[in-house]
Nucleic acid binder design. Structure first.
Lengths: 204, 204
DNA sequence: CCTTATAAATGAACAACGTTCAATTTATGT
DNA sequence: ACATAAATTGAACGTTGTTCATTTATAAGG
C-alpha cells in the first residue's frame, strides 16, 4: 500500500528525536526549532508534524528518554547497597552527576513548561514519580516502623531538596563553582536530613 | 530642552514595569511580549527600547522587584525570633507562601534564562545572595563553634532544598496538591536537616 | 506669531518562530 | 504505461524581538 517512503514513520520518529536531542545538547533548549530539526534530518518543516503532534510533543518524548536514562543510572547502583544511608548518598551523587554531564537535556525536563492545554500523559508523569519511588525504597530501611505515608513525604522532601541544589547550582544561583561543590552540598543535605529523620520523633 | 514628553523617561519606565508585571501576573511569563506591554501603556513597540535595552533587561528589573518584595517579607519576621529553629521554619513558610501567592512572578525569577551574552549585573546577583545570607544568619546560633565556611555551605544546602521542593510543587512534579502539603514538606526538610546539623560531627 | 531646532514617538521592516494544508511528487499495483 | 494513493513539500499566516529612518509635537528665538 505504501508509496514513496524514504523512511518509515518509525525511522522518521527516531531520526527526528535523535536530531532534536543533538540540537538540545549542543545549543540548549532555546536553540531547538522545528526548522532546524527538519534540516538536520534532510526533510522540511511539514514532515515533523506528520510524526509529532507539535514541538511540545517532540520535547515530551525527548524528556521521556532523558528520564529513562536517568532512571537507568539510578538503578545501576542499587546492587551494591549495604548501608541505606550510603545508598541514598549514591543516588544523590548520581543525580547531580547526571545533571552536570548533560545539563541541557536535564534542564529541558525540569524547565520547559508545556502549553497548558496539553495534558501531560500519565505514562510521562510516572517517569517522574518513579524517581521519588526509588528514594522511598531507599528510605524504608531507615524508617522501619513508620507509616508509609511518612516515608513517601520524606522522599519528596529529601529529593525535592536535592533537586533544588542541583538546579540552583546549574543556573549559577548558589555562588559556587565546580561540580564538586555541588556534590558536597548534596551530600551535606542528605546526610544531615537522614540524621534528623532517623533520630526519633520527627516533625509531622 | 525637552520637547514632547507625554511622560518623563522615569514615568515611562515605571509604567512599563507595572504593565509588564500585570501581564506576567495574569498570563504568566510566556504571555509577556513587547507589543502587549506597549499597547498596555498606550505606546508603540519602539518606545520600550528607549527605556529598556531589550526584553531581558525589562525582565531583569521585574525580577529585581520581585526579589525585593521577597526580601521584605523575609525580614519582617526577623523581629520575633527567639528560637533559631523557629526562625528558619518561619523563613521557609514565608518563602513557600510567597511563591504560592505569586507563582508567575516568582517563576520568572527562577525559570527565565537570560541570553548568555547578557551578563547578569552584580547588583542583581546580590539580591539572590541576600536571601542565602539571611538563612546563614539564622543558622549561626545553631553553629556556635563552627567555621563560617560550614555555615555558608549549610545555608546553601538547606535553602537550595527548600527552593527545590517549592519549584517541584509548583510545577506539579511532586504528586501533591494544595499549599499546605508543600508547607509540610518544607517544614519536614528544615527541621530534619537542622536536627542533623546540630547533632555533632556533620559530614564535611 | 511664525520659524526653527530638537527631543519624543512612531511604525514599517526584518528575520525567525510554530503551525497548517493545498499542492506536488513519487513509488506501487494493475 | 497508467492510474492510484501515500509521502513530502513549501508557501502562507500570524506571531515574536529588535532596529532605525521618518514623522510629530513642543519649546525657544526672532
Amino acid at each position: 500500500m505504501a508509496r514513496r517512503s524514504d523512511h518509515s514513520r518509525e525511522e522518521l520518529r527516531e531520526m527526528t528525536l535523535t536530531a532534536a536531542e543533538n540540537i538540545v545538547v549542543e545549543q540548549g533548549y532555546e536553540g531547538l526549532s522545528a526548522r532546524k530539526v527538519a534540516t538536520a534530518i534532510g526533510y522540511t518543516v511539514g514532515t515533523l508534524y506528520l510524526v509529532f503532534e507539535n514541538l511540545d510533543d517532540l520535547i515530551l518524548h525527548i524528556n521521556a528518554r532523558t528520564l529513562d536514562r536517568l532512571h537507568a543510572r539510578m538503578t545501576e547502583s542499587q546492587a551494591n547497597s549495604g548501608d541505606a544511608v550510603d545508598y541514598l548518598l549514591q543516588l544523590g551523587e548520581i543525580y547531580i552527576r547526571f545533571a552536570n554531564d548533560d545539563p541541557h537535556r536535564w534542564a529541558m525536563v525540569f524547565e520547559h513548561r508545556f502549553s497548558e492545554d496539553r495534558v501531560v500523559p500519565a505514562w510521562y508523569q510516572e517517569k517522574i514519580a518513579r524517581m521519588f519511588a526509588m528514594v522511598e525504597v531507599g528510605l524504608e530501611p531507615l524508617a522501619k516502623n513508620r507509616p508509609q505515608q511518612e516515608v513517601t513525604q520524606a522522599a519528596r522532601a529529601l529529593w525535592g531538596g536535592v533537586h533544588g541544589i542541583c538546579i540552583l547550582a546549574l543556573t549559577d544561583n548558589l555562588g559556587i563553582v565546580g561540580v564538586d561543590s555541588v556534590q558536597d552540598l548534596t551530600q551535606s543535605l542528605i546526610s544531615n536530613y537522614l540524621k534528623g529523620f532517623t533520630s526519633h520523633s520527627s516533625v509531622q
